[in-house]
Amino acid sequence: SNREKAKQAFKELLRDKAVPSNASWEQAMKMVVTDPRYSALPKLSEKKQAFNAYKAQRE
């Protein structure tokens, strides 16, 4: 689905920018907000969900 693709793109973005798994949401956003993939997930709640999944995978 498109939403799954968007989630993957967002997680790839976090990986590409080397966002550490112990980063806070605010720290992570400063690192990725300028990338076009930041807008892949329109809802903030979805971004946070993908971010938390990313962190869980990295730990």
Rank of each mutant, 00 (worst) to 15 (best):
S1G: 14
S1A: 13
S1M: 06
S1L: 14
N2P: 03
R3W: 08
R3K: 15
R3S: 14
E4D: 13
K5P: 05
K5F: 08
A6F: 03
A6C: 00
A6V: 07
A6N: 08
A6G: 12
A6P: 06
K7I: 12
K7V: 15
Q8Y: 04
Q8K: 11
A9W: 01
A9H: 04
F10G: 08
F10D: 09
F10S: 08
K11D: 06
K11Y: 10
E12N: 11
E12M: 01
L13P: 04
L14H: 03
L14A: 04
L14G: 05
R15A: 13
R15W: 11
R15E: 14
D16E: 15
D16Q: 05
K17M: 13
K17Y: 10
A18F: 03
A18V: 06
A18L: 11
A18P: 02
A18N: 12
V19C: 02
V19P: 04
V19G: 04
P20G: 05
P20M: 03
S21Q: 13
S21F: 14
S21T: 14
N22V: 04
N22T: 13
A23K: 04
A23V: 09
S24E: 07
S24R: 01
S24I: 01
W25E: 12
W25R: 10
E26W: 02
Q27H: 12
Q27W: 00
Q27L: 04
A28K: 03
A28T: 07
K30N: 11
M31Y: 07
V32P: 05
V32D: 06
V32K: 10
V33E: 15
V33D: 13
T34R: 08
T34Y: 09
T34C: 10
D35F: 00
D35N: 05
D35M: 01
D35P: 00
P36Y: 01
R37C: 01
Y38H: 05
Y38I: 03
Y38W: 12
S39I: 03
A40T: 07
A40K: 08
P42A: 10
P42D: 13
S45F: 09
S45L: 03
E46L: 01
K47F: 07
K47T: 04
K47D: 05
K48A: 04
K48N: 03
K48V: 12
K48W: 03
A50L: 12
A50D: 07
A50W: 02
N52H: 12
N52P: 06
K55C: 15
K55I: 11
K55A: 07
K55D: 08
A56C: 04
A56T: 11
Q57V: 08
Q57S: 14
Q57L: 03
R58P: 13
R58C: 15
R58M: 15
E59V: 14
